[in-house]
Structure formats: structure tokens, C-alpha cells
């Protein structure tokens, strides 16, 4: 099945091209909105703008506190990713390599909390953040994003750690390495693809998260990009040009990161949590 006849390949190509067009059309449409001078919709199917201009980008970049928001988003997302992935790695390592009472319960609880409707955690989370004095602070968002990402990350990483043969560690221990050294020098480097994918997911979740950020951050200077972007759509509900430009600018970093790491995606996902 991995081989095919020339005719078969042509049929496959036709299908693939068809689906690719379906996938790319809405994206092109956003580019058209972003590059068109009018703020409404251009009444045609043609995805190429008739009078391209960068005015919308200029507005979003320089008339709004875009760089401030970019900085906030980057700080929050990177910190949350580093912290969350680190915590998930240590937990996943314990779950994969040690047998201890409460292990099954911990894994089950990681799985189960994933199912609690996230939107409704907002009220309790808000009260806790208020209690801890972390409202309207980036640290608050970092903590929330990193902890809420942990369950998924732990499951992914634990699955990947399980595929790494134990003999490697045992050999290292025989040679006099400590468990901490085994973890840092053997486990982490070997599971780099899975760690990369996990980090990608954490980063994407934090970068794209909108509702919690909107509720927790009160001052305009503390907004993250999604909140700022939504402000744009909310404030001038018909300004689709600005929205398009903003959407492209917000998506760009995460799409780039995604493509940079997509080679790992297949390996990281299938060998990791989503494994039999």
C-alpha cells in the first residue's frame, strides 16, 4: 500500500489538492481582509485583494499597544511553558519509573480533571487568584496556564518515557550516577521529541487562551494578545480589516513554531500519550 501506480498517484494528488484548497481558502480570505483598504467584506469569491495595502497592519502595530501585548503574551506563554513542562517532566518520570502508593490514583485524577468543563472553573479560579492576590498579574496567568496544562503533558510524557528502556538507566546507576543525573542526562535528552511536542502544546494553549486572560487581567497594559485582539473586534465590530491584520500577526509566531516542530509531531504524539 505504500507503493502506487501512476494513475493512483494522480487520483491521490487530485484529492489532496482539493482538500488543500478547502483548508487554505479561509486563510487566504483573512489575508484578503487584512490587505484590503475597506473595513467591510469585499463582495467577491476571489481571494486576491484588488487594491492591496498595509494600512491595517500599520494601524494594529502602531496605533494600538501591540508590542506591549506581544511582550505580555510572550512572557506569559514562555514562562508557563517552561514551568509547566518542567513540572510535567518530573511527575511523568516518577509515574513512569517508580511504583508507589497513589500512583494509579494520581494518573486517574490527571485524566479525570481534563473532563471538568473548563469554563466553569473560572469562578473558583477567580476567587483563589483574588485570595492569593494574583489578579491582574502575569504571575497569576503563568501559574494557571502551567498547572492546567500539566495533566495532558504528564500523560504524553509518561507514555514516551515508558518506551525508553530501563536498562539505560540501570547501566548509568551502576556506573555511579545519581537518580537526578539519570533524569537530567539520560531521560530528558532521549525524550527530546516528546518534550518538544509537549512544550509546543503548552505554548499554543497559553498563547491562544482568551477567556481566563480576559477575566483576570483588568488593566489594558496587562492584556495578552488574544484579549487585545478581541477588544478590536468588540470595539469596532465591523472593522474586519483590523481584525484580519491582528489575526495574522497573532497567529504568525505560533504557526511558525508549529511548522518548525511539526516533524516531531508524528513521533511525539504516537509514541507518547496517544499510544496503546
Amino acid at each position: 500500500m505504500n507503493q502506487s501506480t501512476p494513475l493512483g498517484r494522480i487520483i491521490k494528488l487530485v484529492f489532496l489538492v482539493f482538500f488543500t484548497i478547502l483548508v487554505l481558502y479561509p486563510v487566504l480570505w483573512v489575508f484578503k481582509m487584512a490587505l484590503s483598504p475597506s473595513q467591510g467584506f469585499d463582495a467577491s469569491l476571489n481571494p486576491i485583494p484588488s487594491h492591496p495595502t498595509l494600512e491595517n497592519f500599520r494601524y494594529v502595530l502602531f496605533e494600538m499597544p501591540f508590542f506591549r501585548w506581544l511582550f505580555n503574551s510572550a512572557m506569559v506563554s514562555i514562562s508557563a511553558t517552561v514551568l509547566g513542562v518542567f513540572l510535567a517532566c518530573t511527575s511523568a518520570y516518577a509515574l513512569s519509573r517508580f511504583r508507589f502508593p497513589g500512583r494509579a490514583t494520581a494518573m486517574l485524577s490527571f485524566l479525570v480533571v481534563q473532563m471538568f468543563p473548563g469554563v466553569l472553573m473560572m469562578i473558583p479560579l477567580y476567587l483563589i487568584m483574588d485570595y492569593l492576590g494574583l489578579l491582574d498579574q502575569m504571575l497569576g496567568l503563568v501559574l494557571v496556564y502551567s498547572t492546567t496544562a500539566i495533566p495532558f503533558c504528564v500523560w504524553m510524557l509518561k507514555g514516551y518515557f515508558d518506551t525508553i528502556p530501563k536498562e539505560l538507566e540501570e547501566a548509568a546507576l551502576m556506573d555511579g550516577a545519581s537518580t537526578a543525573m539519570v533524569f537530567w542526562k539520560i531521560m530528558l535528552p532521549l525524550s527530546l521529541p516528546a518534550v518538544a511536542v509537549t512544550a509546543l502544546f503548552s505554548f499554543m494553549t497559553a498563547w491562544n487562551e482568551f477567556i481566563l486572560a480576559a477575566v483576570f487581567m483588568n488593566s489594558r497594559d496587562h492584556y495578552t494578545l488574544p484579549v487585545g485582539l478581541k477588544l478590536l473586534v468588540g470595539q469596532f465590530s465591523s472593522d474586519w480589516g483590523y481584525f484580519g491584520a491582528g489575526a495574522i500577526l497573532v497567529s504568525l509566531p505560533v504557526v511558525a513554531l508549529f511548522f518548525a516542530l511539526q516533524k516531531n509531531l508524528v513521533g511525539g504524539l504516537t509514541a507518547g500519550g496517544v499510544k496503546g
Partner: peptide, 12 residues
């Protein structure tokens, strides 16, 4: 190209 939709923030 086919995984583009996954990469774009879903609220967008």
C-alpha cells in the same frame, strides 16, 4: 499545508 488549521488559534 493540511495541518494549518491546527496551528491557528481556534477563536480566530
Amino acid at each position: 499545508l493540511l495541518i494549518v488549521p491546527w496551528a491557528i488559534p481556534n477563536y480566530i
